[in-house]
Write a protein that binds this DNA or RNA. Structure first.
Lengths: 327, 327
DNA sequence: CTGAAAGCGCTAACAG
DNA sequence: CTGTTAGCGCTTTCAG
């Protein structure tokens, strides 16, 4: 920068001003400005992001925290989330940092890493209230919660209750009168419990008898399928697609035909790659859009704007071939 | 930091030393060190990454460049690549930056952004020689190329030639004597051309007559399928899985049965989500592993070590149900 | 409209 | 073994 200043016959200050993209445009004579820019281009000068970050107190980078360990983009759900974050980042001209270091370290270390200034703010996706998130929030670090609303943290989520109730409606229309709701083994997951409660409430009012299962592994899922059939259930409503595909896989090994012997539904509705059609009847939730909005919220916070405490996006039923009319 | 120093009754310097994780451990009395650490913990002090980055001249962050626009993690190929990069980053304790800003800007701006110090090095995945990459390389910026080897840049790739030749062998064993190779419409993609050349060479020596197609869109792919059947071809070998799934989709709309009427093969073999089995006969290429190695190479470069110019990973045939014996 | 000085928070040198 | 000095590259006062 000093080189540029010397060669252009101005002060370092002037160079700094001349290269400012939009801010204080009027402070420098257009002529000087252009001359400085020309010299800078000639010398191949690029502003140093590190120095800038230190001086300005921000990096224009936001991070993603999705629990200990790095985010598994192989899970379709996170593929969508990361895609949405990228879209949002492009929109607000920021970069996205995928943290790679907080595996197998203490929670204190993780907070330290997240709040050490390498990012300006964080999108958090943890399924239940975490002390880590609360620590971050209490320290005044800008955080937005995705998926599961967290107290005191602006959140973006989808309408779990409505989705679950749409599933109940769908099954009712198809004539199902006995179902099993396959929920998460971990009862702390807020969104899962919301779906469960909403499904059961709706099912009850529609006259669908509902059992609840919380399978923890493949064997257990196998048992759930057998038990359901033994009890005369005609449908299995799963709390998310991952769980639904697990059930489908067990049905296949057990020789249970879907949807002839049993109807199966999921929740999330993330598109498959390669344009492959998903056959699963599910609730399509706009996770990418939710993630994009989370970035916009975070950006607004960083700009000192007020942001809504909660944004809930609508979901819709996507009928597949895993549900059918009860004969 | 000054607060910590005062409270512990030492100089700022001592604090800096005490908090160093591994480096100069012996320079400070263990006792002082512990005292300082205790005070730091008490005050909730965290080192400022921005200041550190400026002073040390590095950020411990590496970036990914996969062409203009942000990397589409929805493409299974990039899902694998990003996963591999994450694994590598964890291993070398660095973060991964997904750039969000270089969409719709000039190439100069992109180079400026990539080389402005926000990242220490870059993993590049571009299918053919790009001036951007050469500019970066010539400026001495640490770069590793993934997928397509680039002159003067350490590269990690998979054995395209061997994979293509395995496909030819497979088709030959199944009795195919006439095939169409479905390549990329863009003849500049080095890996695609390598696969094409290797397939054709092997096919010829095995006595398989091979036509070449370079379909640009769905209509065109439709034509390729019809033409292939009209010409008596019994197999379509596609240069990658995306292209193969496109062909399969056209076969379906055209009422062409796979593999009864036509065998179809792909290349990449990326696993599908949800444990779904892919039915496509393809070449499994370890892209995640390649990406992980790319990070290790980059890290080695940044540590001033010598790195091999080219690393080629082996691939293997994964037979599916889209190929069968010619009757 | 432009320049000079001060400092963001940290660490590498050198003294003590 | 510890403290002092200087400076990474930039921008924000405050004078000119």
């Amino acid at each position: 920068m000093r080189d540029v200043a010397e060669k252009a016959g101005v002060s370092v200050m002037a160079v700094s001003l001349a290269l400012r993209s939009d801010g204080d445009a009027g402070r420098l004579a257009p002529e000087t400005r252009e001359r400085v820019r020309a010299v800078a281009a000639e010398l191949g000068y690029v502003q140093n992001a590190r120095a800038r970050a230190l001086r300005l107190g921000r990096t224009n980078v936001i991070g993603l925290y999705a629990g200990h360990g790095y985010t598994n983009v192989r899970l379709p759900f996170f593929t969508e989330v990361v895609s949405g974050l990228q879209e949002g980042c492009e929109q607000v001209r920021r970069d996205l940092l995928l943290h790679g270091v907080f595996h197998a370290t203490s929670e204190g270390d993780i907070v330290r890493e997240l709040a050490d200034g390498r990012i300006d703010g964080l999108v958090v996706s943890v399924p239940f209230s975490s002390t880590l998130l609360m620590t971050l929030r209490d320290s005044g670090f800008p955080v937005v919660s995705l998926v599961d609303p967290q107290p005191g943290v602006p959140s973006v989520t989808v309408d779990d209750a409505n989705g679950a109730s749409q599933i109940a409606d769908h099954l009712h229309e198809l004539g199902h009168r006995k179902a099993v709701y396959v929920s998460s083994p971990d009862a702390r997951i807020a969104s899962a419990e919301k779906r469960l409660a909403s499904f059961c409430a709706r099912a009850q009012s529609l006259g669908i008898a509902t059992d609840i299962a919380r399978p923890v592994d493949e064997d257990h899922r196998h048992g759930v399928v057998r038990q359901a059939l033994a009890n005369g259930a005609t449908a299995l409503a799963c709390w998310n697609d991952v769980s639904a595909y697990g059930i489908l896989s067990q049905c296949e090994t057990a020789g249970v035909r879907v949807p002839d012997d049993l109807s199966v539904t999921g929740f999330d509705g993330v598109p498959l790659p390669y344009g492959l059609r998903s056959d699963l009847t599910t609730i399509e939730a706009p996770w990418a859009e939710a993630a994009r909005l989370a970035v916009l919220r975070l950006d607004a916070m960083l700009n000192g704007e007020e942001v809504p405490a909660l944004t809930t996006l609508p979901v819709r039923l996507a009928p597949g071939v895993t549900t059918k009319q009860v004969s």
